[in-house]
């Protein structure tokens, strides 16, 4: 439960329907969860804004939904709003902007209308350009190959297989395919292409090229978020994030195994 601390004593929940506050905070929290923020950040940001609006606030974060309850000082009125968590993909850009919004609301004592207007603008934030992500990811995975001891040829093989595999992932996600099937297909083709080192006897470290070719698909952020949620005692969300990440890892592992099986390779 949050103690009441308003920006201005004249501002109170009676001027604006509590339901609108609850709806705004629920939408804010749902988007913040969807863009990959940790549960503690969602709690703190939403609580900060509730304090600034002069209302009492409670949030209940579930893996697929967020529920917000707000009530006024004398507990004569209360409102509950629930929203489904947004499926917008991890975006630290959105995370930073939404966190900044909570501080702007608290420091500048913005009204609900102004906050909602800024929130709508933040929702329109464009993701990073797909070609930029494609090239940078390929370079990143090739660097990974080097970190694991791969030579120059292995790095080139990994660069090309990541470029193709990630492009396939982008195409399948644009088409609305299930993300698990996407991971399976992307890892299958990336692993198969990177097996060129073994098949055509190119380079000195073909096994490293094969092993590192699918690392760009590992869902690192959900794993990190799940442990962070455990630390802050959001065990349900932690388990949900962990299982999601584990299932994606299983899918990419299955794609890698399938690729190696079809090509008759054994590296483990």
């Amino acid at each position: 439960m949050m103690t009441l601390k308003t920006c201005d004593k004249k501002r109170s929940a009676s001027g604006v329907a509590l339901q609108r506050f609850a709806a705004f905070l629920a939408e804010y929290a749902a988007l913040l969860y969807g863009c990959g923020a940790t549960s503690i950040r969602i709690e703190k940001n939403a609580a900060r804004m509730a304090r600034a609006f002069g209302i009492n606030f409670y949030i209940f974060i579930m893996p697929a939904h967020v529920s917000v309850t707000v009530w006024d000082d004398d507990e004569s009125d209360a409102a509950v709003a629930a929203r489904r968590t947004a499926a917008c993909g991890i975006s630290f850009n959105l995370n930073a902007r939404l966190s900044r919004l909570s501080w702007v609301v608290a420091d500048q004592c913005l009204s609900l209308e102004d906050a909602a207007e800024r929130f709508e603008k933040i929702k329109q934030t464009k993701p990073t350009g797909k070609w930029e992500v494609l090239v940078l990811t390929s370079i990143a995975n090739a660097s990974f190959c080097h970190l694991f001891g791969g030579d120059g040829v292995a790095m080139i093989i990994v660069f090309i297989s990541t470029l193709v595999g990630y492009r396939l992932k982008q195409i399948m996600l644009e088409d609305g395919r299930d993300v698990r099937l996407t991971f399976l297909c992307a890892s299958f083709f990336s692993a198969s292409l990177s097996a060129a080192g073994h098949i055509f006897n190119i380079g000195g470290t073909p096994e490293i090229a094969l092993g590192t070719s699918v690392l760009y698909l590992i869902p690192g952020i959900p794993y990190l978020n799940s442990v962070s949620d455990v630390i802050y005692r959001h065990y349900l969300c932690a388990l949900s994030r962990f299982f999601e990440a584990a299932i994606l890892t299983a899918c990419l592992s299955a794609g890698l195994c399938a690729g190696m099986l079809i090509l008759g390779l054994k590296t483990f």
């Binding site: 193709v164 195409i171 198969s192 292409l193 098949i199 079809i262």
Partner: peptide
């Protein structure tokens, strides 16, 4: 050309065709 090489070439070319077609 071995059996494995043929399979690899088929997979690589099908993927390339998919991406070119989509582009």
């Amino acid at each position: 050309m071995t059996h494995t090489m043929i399979i690899w070439c088929i997979m690589a070319s099908s993927l390339l065709c998919t991406i070119i077609f989509r582009t």
